[in-house]
Every structure is written in structure tokens, then in C-alpha cells.
């Protein structure tokens, strides 16, 4: 039990560091550095904790990103930065890089390497399974981050007083 929690915490910490790296690549303001790390950490923790309880990776990603989308409004109010600045970096570690890699690998083997008919069927299976998992994760990231912003837009962070 303890090792599971420690593993989760380690993976979550690396998610936070990955979020920070991308924030710095996008030249985020220095004031949001702790926020980006904490959001990246929390999102990673939620995603991997859910996956540990056998929730599918697509749904787990959606819930983690949706959490960031929900929490960014009150946080924006508190730290006085627009939500985009600290919402996009924590979602980048969710990108399905490994599935993309597996898809490209299977496509390459299918076209250039494999002649055995049975193995080619397996490769088609791999292309579809990995490719569509990647696609659905991407869709859930995009939807998860933008839906809360649209739902909560009626009460924007600050209002113009005419």
C-alpha cells in the first residue's frame, strides 16, 4: 500500500516538473510557477490514481483535465493572472506520446517490414487500438480544458463596470 502511494506521488511529482518545463518554454510569468507545479502535480495524481483503480486512461485523463479547467477560475481570481497562462502547461503532460509512438511504429512495420499475413492483421489491430486511444485522449484534453471555461463564462473572473 505504502509503495503504491509513493509510486503515485513520484509520478505526480514528475508530472508537475513536466508542466513546469513547458511553462518555462512558453515563458510563463514568474508568479505562476508554484501554481503550475501544484496543478500539474494534482492532475497527474488524479489521473494515475484513477488508472490504478482500473479506470480507462481516456476517462481518467478527461477527469484530471476537467478538474484543472474547473479550478482555474477561482485560482485566476486569487493570483491575478488570466486562466490560459497556468491552465495549458499542466495539461501538456497528459499528451498521449507513447500511443502516438506505438501507432507510428505499427504503421511503419505494416508498410515496410511485415509480409506474414497473420502478423499484418495484428499490426492493423495495433494501429487502430493505439491510434484511436491517442485520438480520444486528445479530444478529452481539449474538451476537458475548454468546457469549464464555457460553462463558467457567465460569471467571468472580473467584470467591466461601466
Amino acid at each position: 500500500m505504502l509503495t503504491i502511494i509513493l509510486n503515485l506521488l513520484e509520478v505526480a511529482a514528475w508530472s508537475g516538473i513536466a508542466a513546469l518545463g513547458f511553462g518555462i518554454l512558453f515563458n510563463m510569468p514568474k508568479g505562476v510557477v508554484p501554481t503550475v507545479f501544484i496543478l500539474g502535480f494534482t492532475a497527474g495524481f488524479i489521473k494515475f490514481a484513477l488508472m490504478h483503480f482500473n479506470v480507462h486512461i481516456v476517462l481518467a485523463t478527461f477527469i484530471a483535465v476537467f478538474f484543472i479547467g474547473i479550478i482555474c477560475m477561482p485560482v485566476a481570481h486569487k493570483i491575478h493572472h488570466p486562466p490560459v497562462v497556468f491552465c495549458i502547461p499542466p495539461t501538456i503532460p497528459m499528451i498521449p506520446g507513447y500511443f502516438a509512438y506505438e501507432t507510428v511504429l505499427s504503421v511503419m512495420n505494416f508498410i515496410f517490414m511485415e509480409a506474414n499475413q497473420a502478423k499484418r492483421m495484428e499490426l492493423i489491430d495495433a494501429i487502430f487500438a493505439n491510434g484511436f486511444t491517442m485520438l480520444f485522449i486528445l479530444i478529452s484534453i481539449a474538451a476537458g480544458i475548454s468546457l469549464p471555461m464555457l460553462l463558467l463564462r457567465k460569471n467571468t473572473v472580473k467584470k467591466i463596470e461601466d
Binding site: W14, L20, G21, L25, G97
Partner: peptide, 18 residues
């Protein structure tokens, strides 16, 4: 240099995630 190191650490973090 800060950007280089931070992004490389992010790459290492990704590797840990997968």
C-alpha cells in the same frame, strides 16, 4: 540555458510518466 534544462527535465518527467 534555463529553458533548455527545464524542458529537458520535462522530457525526463514524461519518460517517468510512461
Amino acid at each position: 540555458l534555463v529553458v533548455l534544462i527545464a524542458v529537458s527535465l520535462a522530457g525526463a518527467g514524461f519518460c517517468n510518466i510512461f
